[in-house]
Computed example of a mutant assay.
Amino acid sequence: MLDYMTLRLIWWAILGVLLVGFAVMDGFDLGVAILHPFVARNDTQRRVILNTIGPVWEGNQVWFILGGGAIFAAWPPLYATSFSGFYLAMLLVLLGLILRPVAITFRSKGESARWRNAWDWLFFISGFLPSLLFGVAFGNVLLGVPFHFDQSLRVAYEGGLIGLLRPFALLCGLVSLTMIVMQGAAYLARKTEGEVAARARRIGAVAALALALLFTAAGLWVALGVDGYRITSEIDPSGPSNPLLKTVTTGAGGWLYNYAAFKWPAAAPALAYLGALVAAVALAVGARTVALFASSLSVAGVVTTAGFSMFPFLLPSSSHPDHSLTVWDASSSQTTLGLMLAAVVFFLPIILVYTSWVYYVLRGPVTESAIEAGDDFHY
């Protein structure tokens, strides 16, 4: 079996891969939902958009389920603390995710324009709400969350839903929202033709440029106005999972330490910028495949920037910094991590191969003529 420190690092990387997979794959589903009322002008075009994601959105959501499962199994204190602290926000996210299949399914149950318009706007909410709240959650993690442990390691959360709506967190919500819109637009540009694709390209190019600007603003705010966290005591990367055995200090620019110490994490924000700019240009000139690839790389860059900035912290505590959860003190046992790693090594390639096969089978655009001809479309 691998040593405890290596297993912890591997599971930190796996969690990152799952979050990136969710942001990229389910990101374009959420983006398509947000764009749905704005790129379609009639019922046929709305059906075109629904059918671009109809066969794949359930499979894409597997990444979200895997991410939640990984947190539950590999980082139990992180799961307990974050899901308790963000309970009402999580309910709103789940409400949005639940609305998506309901809106897709029930829209076609009635013929009236009022009926379909109502479900179209609920479909929009199903994309807008999670996209915004995921970014707000990441912003609050960077700021620190008010929680602490007692001597029995029982967690107490001291905040509320309104307290999560801080200015920096809302800025991160806008970063997330523009990122998801860019990804959805790049996907629609690739999977549709004609007016729908043209509108998606225009909106996507603007969203990509907005992402670059907002990401810059968030980076400057992190460097100058957000207190980062640093471990100041000796730690044992193979020691017990007890968050009370360390000391932590906070200070301006603390989240930049990894970039100064190791240099290579700077590749993540560079990828976010470069991907967004390439996506904007590619969408503007009609290079649709390049746009989707560049947009996906930008999304990966944004998510990994947060991970590299915070390492080894998983969930900092703003009220009791010494109680912050890190990679070294919030994991399951060595045996548990080892057994789960064996399962991941076996099942993750199967998921990747199956997903690749599905997208290969469903390659090609969804067209208005095919929808009007009734060529086996269900939405």
Rank of each mutant, 00 (worst) to 15 (best):
A208D: 13
F38P: 13
L94E: 07
V196P: 15
L50I: 10
L315N: 04
T250S: 09
S233A: 11
A208C: 11
A218E: 11
R116D: 12
V358E: 07
I162K: 00
F72S: 02
L277R: 00
P237N: 02
M340C: 04
S108V: 12
N60T: 07
F215Y: 10
L142T: 09
A198V: 10
L164M: 11
K109F: 14
T6L: 13
T105H: 14
A223I: 05
P349I: 07
I34G: 07
Y360C: 01
L91G: 12
Y187K: 00
V345W: 10
A33K: 02
I231F: 10
F215K: 00
L92E: 06
K109N: 10
R288D: 15
V353I: 15
C172L: 05
G159W: 08
L7S: 06
I350C: 12
D227A: 06
P316Y: 01
S318Q: 03
A137Y: 06
L88C: 02
A40Y: 09
A74H: 04
V281S: 03
Y259G: 07
N140M: 05
P237L: 09
W264N: 00
V248W: 13
K109Y: 15
N258Q: 12
G127P: 15
I34T: 05
H323L: 03
F83E: 07
I34P: 14
S84T: 15
G194I: 06
R114Q: 02
A276T: 11
G16Y: 08
S356C: 08
G275D: 11
G219V: 03
V17Y: 09
P101L: 02
V181F: 11
A217L: 15
L91A: 08
L97D: 08
F311V: 04
L177I: 13
A210G: 13
P76H: 02
R190G: 05
V56I: 15
S241P: 15
P55W: 05
A266R: 00
F313H: 03
P76M: 01
L170M: 09
V48E: 06
L337R: 02
T6V: 13
V24R: 00
I71C: 09
S82N: 01
I162Q: 02
L271G: 12
L161R: 00
M1R: 01
A282S: 14
A200I: 04
I14W: 10
A118I: 12
A370N: 06
G251I: 08
G239E: 10
A300R: 00
L315F: 04
L97R: 00
P240K: 00
T336W: 04
I49P: 14
V93M: 05
F138S: 07
V136N: 03
W11Y: 10
S309I: 09
L314P: 13
R363A: 14
G275A: 04
